[in-house]
Design a protein around this nucleic acid. Structure first.
Lengths: 247, 247
DNA sequence: CGTTACCTTGAATCTCCTCAATACACGTGG
DNA sequence: CCACGTGTATTGAGGAGATTCAAGGTAACG
């Protein structure tokens, strides 16, 4: 067996010790190490998975931010979700033949790369990891359902509050939050595209949100001054945090 | 082993021979038969999976229609998706401890019931079926992503056209469509709740859609007179049909 | 027949959108 | 150091689309 050395070997995976992530057995870790074929660095702004194309790879985000989105011919787009450290991308093209959305890097990223053909081996020999993949897919579904309810039933004001909390929570799990501060690589246009709102209306609504004094967001730094009040705006059963797997 | 006899034994499962569903090996079929613990009949209007509760069961729809939805305190609700024959329900409460949405029968239904504890056995001994579960979860995610883009980016007119085609396509796969006719147990209120629109505006928009002459919908019978024209309204990459598993 | 559920209509209102400018931050090259 | 370009944020005005309220109308059912 060729001893390839990665910059981030699986045994020393930075995700392994993060709170919120489950630990793997050494057998699982060995499998994952053999499943991994490399690391990919993507510069901010690049699209590394494309709607309609078949990717031969699966990715786990090691660092950086990305957005999953669907684009339309008329220039509009819907941002489905954001991806941070620990998120698993490209499963669709392994299960179906093609991606049905694209993924674009918001910041420079480091991705862990796996070969999609070998996913069968995973199912045959690693039932625990197979279960994890189902878990991750189901969790994505949960987040999308939440967003659907958010966009379908809430006003712009509540919608954006909900979105900000969602992003904040996901960033916190990924270990990117310092206290109540978060360096957020999103523009107002991203928020608008995620919420199905126009840029102008998003801007005005964000101003109203800031006027409450419960948050500030200046030059990419988001600070939640009063999380409790913000959460009151989005009463709707929080998405219960549990230990999650990663590959 | 007690020889329980179901009204619909797995070997004679009506879903088995439907186009669009994959066939199982006899080993798989045996496992599924042992996994099945019964059949459940639910009358129209009943909610058999509830948001926030832990269901001990997993279900496959054998016949009838259901809606998956999230309800809010203020009386509003978001319909996430509809479920027809072959759809798998309740996976969430197996993977996470609780459901994060509810499921309600629109018509009388027959459901195939599985025990959630035994899902581990499935992962340990039936990697093909384990893969299928991931497939089903990922496919649900795909549909939700599609709906999210639909609601977020399209006008009421296009939105509803898209929704109608989605429902029609899913019903066709389930074998419920005769030619271009479909008996649809949905009210306009269901459409409204699914699209994030008010009932009044949904009504007026449906009238505009009917005025095109491309469809009629009277007394629960939906007829697509001009599918091609309707699909033009929703240009957005059709959700590629493939053989799907069921349990 | 009367009740119920669903569909339809009109009118007043408000949220959100588009268009069009302007302002600010940041980086680049002169 | 300043002039300039680019990407992002902000403002104002006018209008389209969607909402709410409030009535009716129609089919189905007992």
């Amino acid at each position: 067996m060729p001893m390839t050395s990665f910059e981030v070997p699986c045994e020393k995976c930075p995700l392994q010790n993060r709170p919120g992530f489950r630990r793997f057995s050494s057998e699982e870790l060995n499998f994952i190490a053999s499943f991994k074929i490399g690391e990919l660095r993507v510069a901010a702004g690049n699209q590394f998975l494309t709607d309609g194309s078949a990717s031969p790879h699966l990715y786990t985000v090691l660092s950086g931010w990305a957005i999953r989105h669907k684009s339309f011919e008329n220039g509009r787009r819907q941002i489905l979700n954001i991806a941070v450290a620990g998120d698993f991308l490209g499963l669709q093209s392994s299960l179906f033949s093609e991606m049905t959305h694209s993924v674009e890097a918001l910041t420079d990223m480091i991705l862990c790369v796996f070969a999609r053909e070998r996913i069968w081996e995973l199912y045959n020999s690693q039932s625990g990891l197979a279960f994890d993949l189902t878990w991750l897919a189901a969790r994505e579904e949960q987040v999308l359902a939440d967003q659907l309810a958010n966009i379908g039933q809430r006003s712009a004001f509540h919608r954006i509050a909900h979105m900000i909390l969602l992003v904040f929570d996901r960033a916190r799990i990924a270990g990117l939050v310092q206290g109540n501060k978060l360096a957020l690589p999103l523009t107002q246009e991203h928020i608008a595209d995620a919420m199905g709102l126009s840029l102008v209306h998003t801007n005005k609504t964000l101003q109203r949100l800031r006027q409450t004094g419960w948050l500030t967001w200046d030059r990419g730094i988001l600070v939640l001054k009063n999380q409790a009040k913000l959460r009151e705006l989005t009463e709707c059963a929080a998405p219960g945090e549990r230990l999650r797997p990663y590959l």
